[in-house]
C-alpha cells in the first residue's frame, strides 16, 4: 500500500510539472498585461522540437534548450500583434495556437510512433533522496520537476521582490503611469510574452522527452488551456501556481488510478476539464478585488493616447 501511495504522489509531481512551467510562464506574461492564449500551440511546438532534437542527437538537454528557443521565437508573433499592432489579444493568441498546433503536426509527422532511445534521466539528489517517502517522492525526480519548482520560486522572487519585477507588474496595472516613470512598456511586454513562451515550450519538452518518450499529434491534450485557468487560480502569483499545478497533476493521475474500478475511461478523461470548470467556479465566489487580476490585462496600450 505504501508503495502505491509513493508511486501515486511521485507521478502526481511528474504530471503537475508541465502545468507548473506553463502557469509560471503565463503568470509572467499576464502580469505585464498581455493575455496569451497561444500556450497550447507553443507547448506543442516545444514538445515536437524537443522530440526531434533528442531523436537526432540523443541529448535531451540540448533538446530542452532548442525547444525553449523555438517557443520564444514563435511567441514573438503574439508579442508583435498584441504590443506593436495593438491587435485583439484573444484572436491573436488563438492564431498562435492554430499555427503552433499545425506546425508541430507538420514537423512531427515523420516521427509519429517512433520511440526515443534516450529520455531525460531522473536525478537523485544525494542525501535528500535517502529520506524515506519524501526522498523518493520529491528528490528522485525528473530534472524538469526541480527546474519547475525552482523557476516558480524564482519567478515569485522576481515579480514581488525586484525592481524589474515591479516594473513588470506596474506595466500590467497602469502602463501609462509606468511609461511616465521612464519605463519602456513595449519592451517589457515583448520580453514577458517571449519569456512566457519559453516556459510553455519547456513544458512541452517535458511532455515528449521526460513524461513520455514519444510524439503524437495533440499530445498536449488541452494542458495549455488548463494553464490559463490555473493562472487565475494562482491569483497571478507563481508561488500559488505550485499548489494549483500539483493538484491538477493529481487529477491527471487519478484517471489512471480509477480506471481499474471499471469506470469508463472516457468519463475519467473528462476529469481534468471538468475540474478546471469547477475550480474556476469556486474562485468566482472570491471577492473580485482580492482576485488580483492585472488591471489592464488584455487591453492594448497605445502610446501617447489618452
Amino acid at each position: 500500500m505504501e508503495d502505491v501511495i509513493v508511486s501515486v504522489v511521485q507521478r502526481t509531481m511528474v504530471a503537475g510539472t508541465p502545468l507548473l512551467l506553463g502557469t509560471v510562464g503565463e503568470v509572467i506574461c499576464e502580469r505585464s498585461g498581455i493575455l496569451n492564449l497561444g500556450v497550447e500551440g507553443v507547448m506543442s511546438v516545444g514538445a515536437v522540437v524537443a522530440f526531434i532534437v533528442t531523436y537526432s542527437t540523443g541529448d535531451p538537454w540540448l533538446a530542452m534548450v532548442a525547444a525553449i528557443g523555438a517557443g520564444m521565437i514563435i511567441s514573438i508573433l503574439h508579442a508583435f500583434a498584441s504590443v506593436t499592432l495593438q491587435a485583439n489579444q484573444v484572436v491573436s493568441g488563438l492564431a498562435l495556437t492554430m499555427i503552433g498546433l499545425g506546425l508541430s503536426g507538420m514537423l512531427g509527422k515523420q516521427y509519429v510512433g517512433k520511440p526515443l532511445a534516450v529520455k531525460m534521466d531522473d536525478i537523485a539528489i544525494p542525501w535528500l533522496s535517502d529520506i524515506p517517502f519524501i526522498g523518493t517522492v520529491f528528490f528522485k525526480q525528473t530534472p524538469y520537476f526541480y527546474m519547475a519548482v525552482f523557476l516558480a520560486l524564482g519567478a515569485w522572487f522576481f515579480l514581488e521582490r525586484t525592481r524589474l519585477g515591479i516594473k513588470v507588474r506596474s506595466t500590467g496595472e497602469n502602463p501609462r503611469a509606468t511609461e511616465t516613470q521612464g519605463v519602456n512598456v513595449a519592451r517589457i511586454r515583448y520580453a514577458c510574452v517571449i519569456i512566457g513562451g519559453g516556459f510553455s515550450a519547456m513544458a512541452g519538452a517535458h511532455l515528449s522527452t521526460s513524461y513520455s518518450k514519444s510524439w503524437i499529434e495533440g499530445m498536449t491534450a488541452g494542458r495549455g488551456w488548463i494553464v490559463i485557468a490555473l493562472t487565475i487560480f494562482a491569483l497571478w502569483n507563481p508561488g500559488r501556481a505550485i499548489w494549483g499545478a500539483f493538484i491538477f497533476g493529481g487529477i491527471f493521475v487519478l484517471q489512471y488510478l480509477l480506471q481499474p474500478l471499471g469506470i469508463s475511461p472516457n468519463f475519467l478523461a473528462m476529469l481534468p476539464y471538468g475540474s478546471t470548470l469547477l475550480i474556476l467556479l469556486v474562485m468566482s465566489f472570491k471577492d473580485p478585488r482580492r482576485l488580483n487580476a492585472p488591471a489592464q490585462l488584455g487591453e492594448p496600450y497605445k502610446r501617447g493616447e489618452r
Partner: peptide, 23 residues
Amino acid sequence: GLPAATVQIVNGILLVFLIMGDY
C-alpha cells in the same frame, strides 16, 4: 504528401494577417 496539419498552419497564418491588416 503533406500532413493534415498543413491546413491549420494556413488558417493560423491567414488569421494573423487579417488582424495585422486591421492595424
